[in-house]
Design a protein around this nucleic acid. Structure first.
Length: 279
DNA sequence: TGCCAGGCCTTCC
DNA sequence: GGAAGGCATGGC
């Protein structure tokens, strides 16, 4: 077990905000899978406690995953200056952090998210892990890692359809194949600037503008990315356009100008407050 | 029943 | 290059 002193971390806001799909809460503890290990997380005052099926290098893994070396208190203070609505949202959902998740898992997860709802997304990802991922036993229970590109590349459209992914079956098959054959090379993505990265990700089947922005925000630490989904669209139309219908491209361009380098963080606070009916 | 869900792809103009 | 229509499935 490791103990890490933290500030500005709210596990509920961070792990149950739609950026990740594999965490479950038992009492005040979260259990989930990070890459090759099962992890249990809980907070006591300003300490984060971590247990895992694999203790090796655990603190560093958690620091990277939860973005613990970035000063979110300062970022929240900065973005609260943008306007009163954002300040209220940030106050309501303070402590959201942006995960650095496994890239392949995030790509597939957000392909599945298109025109879908969160409970069903979770169910599909869990079933894919059970069928194609490695088994890990921890604390007397069985867990499954999310499959690697190679492991998922054996899946057929028909098999995936049975796991509940619906019409997205062929996107998953095609995207996995493109990554396996390095038509899009996972190894160089990190080196690209955000604009180039988005263009590259959108070559993948089932990855459009919104899904690419989610992938960049939730697994590449690109905090300037602003995913425009149905919730954010409504929130933004109400806040800035008198409730008029505005297309997603315009909303995205205006948000990038208005919010700058932390647009993604603003987005997530707006998203959380929009979902909860606060705005 | 009909509508919606963290949209994208294809077709057609 | 932009606008429609189609797409699986479960929950309400």
């Amino acid at each position: 077990m490791v103990e890490i002193k933290v500030n500005c971390l709210n596990l509920d806001e961070t792990l149950d905000c739609g950026q990740c799909f594999r965490w479950e809460k038992f009492g005040d503890k979260y259990i989930g899978v990070i890459k090759d290990r099962v992890v249990k997380l809980w907070m006591q005052e300003d300490s984060l406690f971590v247990e895992s099926s694999k203790e090796e290098n655990l603190e560093n893994v958690i620091r990277e995953y939860l973005d613990l070396d970035v000063d979110y208190a300062k970022i929240e203070k900065d973005i609260s200056k943008i306007d009163g609505t954002i300040k209220n949202c940030v106050d309501n959902s303070s402590g959201i952090r942006f995960l650095k998740q496994d890239k392949f898992e995030t790509i597939i997860s957000f392909i599945i998210s298109a025109n879908n709802n969160i409970p069903r997304i979770k169910k599909s990802i869990e079933k894919i892990s059970e069928k194609y991922g490695k088994k890990v036993e921890y604390d007397g229970k069985v867990y499954y890692l999310f499959p690697s590109i190679e492991e998922l590349s054996v899946a057929s459209k028909e098999e995936l359809r049975e796991l509940g992914v619906g019409f997205r079956d062929r996107y998953i098959v095609d995207t996995t194949k493109m990554l396996l054959e390095k038509e899009v090379d996972m190894d160089i993505l990190e080196t690209l600037n955000t604009k180039e990265l988005k263009k590259e990700l959108m070559k993948l089947k089932g990855v459009g503008s919104k899904v690419a922005d989610c992938i960049m925000l939730f697994s590449f630490s690109r905090k300037e990315c602003f995913p425009v989904d149905v919730w954010i669209k409504r929130v933004m139309q109400n806040l800035y356009y008198n409730g008029l219908e505005i297309d997603n491209k315009k909303i995205l361009e205006d948000a990038e100008k208005r919010y700058g380098m932390y647009a993604g963080i603003v987005q997530q606070h707006l998203f959380q407050n929009g979902r909860k009916g606060n705005i």
